[in-house]
Design a protein around this nucleic acid. Structure first.
Lengths: 217, 217
DNA sequence: CCTACCGATCGGTAGG
DNA sequence: CCTACCGATCGGTAGG
């Protein structure tokens, strides 16, 4: 028997108490598992994380996550589904807030960088990096949501190309821009010299052709 | 005992014979292991690939890779080291071939896309996707080579910014451009409508400001 | 390189 | 949710 499987009453009781204090039922406990799994999957990868790791991180014993999930793959699915849900809500809000195409693009870039880089934002990075680890049947269930995500970017990018703020084919432009932005998940350091706002602004300026109209600047 | 561990004389003998026909010593056999490991690590991830998988793919028995490598991590290191070595040679050649900064940029983009997308080019994608899986001591030994890679791009990008073909901070520009290009490793299909040459050309056009001088279009 | 093997770990389950 | 457990698999090794 591994040391990690031995009873550790004090820390276990502490975690369980903290959970209860938050006033949670099953739904809340499940949410905790998903959040903690996202962090571990991001840090160690899906196959580098054990169900025991996840259980321990929320103060459960090794077999208990299977009370909430049928399989480890289902936990991965839940992580990605949650990431897409929250990401889509925030991205749609950014675009719906109005303004010029350039302004909406700036807001969408900022929203996406937040989804990628803010504290607790491990869901979408897990999707980007562990997508191949998700069984095909689960993958199919997420692709519809992913398509809405892509369409959001694609429409805005097509608008920007139409008015000369970007060049080239809209689909390729989308792939290049999203690739550039998503890559920040690998190199951005929250303690570094660049705030997320600054990064979003500089990224927008990098991609968009300088505006023709000489607004005071 | 697992079925995969049971003797499978015919297929084993076939693989071993094929290897011998190529006329190889230990070095050649080691190279085979690295190449096959690159493919498997890319497809299944480092932790999703077993040493047995690698052994079987070159017609060895489960324990034999340890005649060539001390550990599974060392195989991963060898994959990344080989990727960086070949990648650096090809990238430096592209830049050294001369021409304007724009032309050298086009060649570097093409070379990098080849490294990422051509048949048998699994080494750099493994490095991009499994970097976190490499133990820190091995990581340190690769960073010097990675830095040369980055410097190559950075110098060229600085040149392009100086002459107005790109905007913004050189370091951020490098991260955005490399992110955009590297992302192709996840979406590009070799059987798709776009050749690597076409992709390289369109990517270059997307990033670089249209040239001022009106050369015969 | 193979044979034969080991200790450790892992996903998952039965029965409360 | 825990206890107690199982079968399978895995990285790695000794001794040729």
């Amino acid at each position: 028997m591994a040391a990690a499987d031995l009873p550790q009453p004090s820390s276990r009781r502490r975690a369980a108490t903290a959970a209860r204090r938050r006033g949670n039922g099953d739904a809340n406990r499940r949410t905790q598992l998903v959040r903690v799994a996202a962090r571990l999957f991001r840090e160690r990868g899906f196959n580098g994380t054990t169900v025991r790791d996840i259980a321990q991180a929320v103060g459960m014993r090794s077999g208990s996550p299977f009370y909430y999930f049928d399989s480890k793959e289902q936990i991965l699915f839940a992580v990605m589904e949650e990431g897409l849900r929250v990401g889509l809500v925030r991205s749609e809000a950014a675009v719906a807030s109005g303004g010029s195409a350039r302004q909406r693009f700036a807001k969408l870039v900022r929203a996406h960088l937040g989804i990628l880089l803010e504290d607790g934002s491990d869901f979408i990075p897990v999707m980007l990096y562990e997508w191949r680890r998700l069984p095909a049947s689960y993958r199919r269930r997420l692709i519809a949501v992913k398509d809405r995500y892509d369409a959001l970017w694609q429409q805005l990018i097509a608008e920007l190309i139409a008015q000369g703020a970007l060049r080239g084919d809209p689909k390729l432009a989308r792939l290049l821009i999203l690739g550039a932005v998503n890559f920040a998940a690998t190199w951005y350091r929250r303690n570094g010299p660049l705030s997320i706002d600054q990064l979003a602004h500089a990224t927008t300026e990098f991609f968009l052709t300088p505006a023709r109209s000489g607004k005071a600047r």
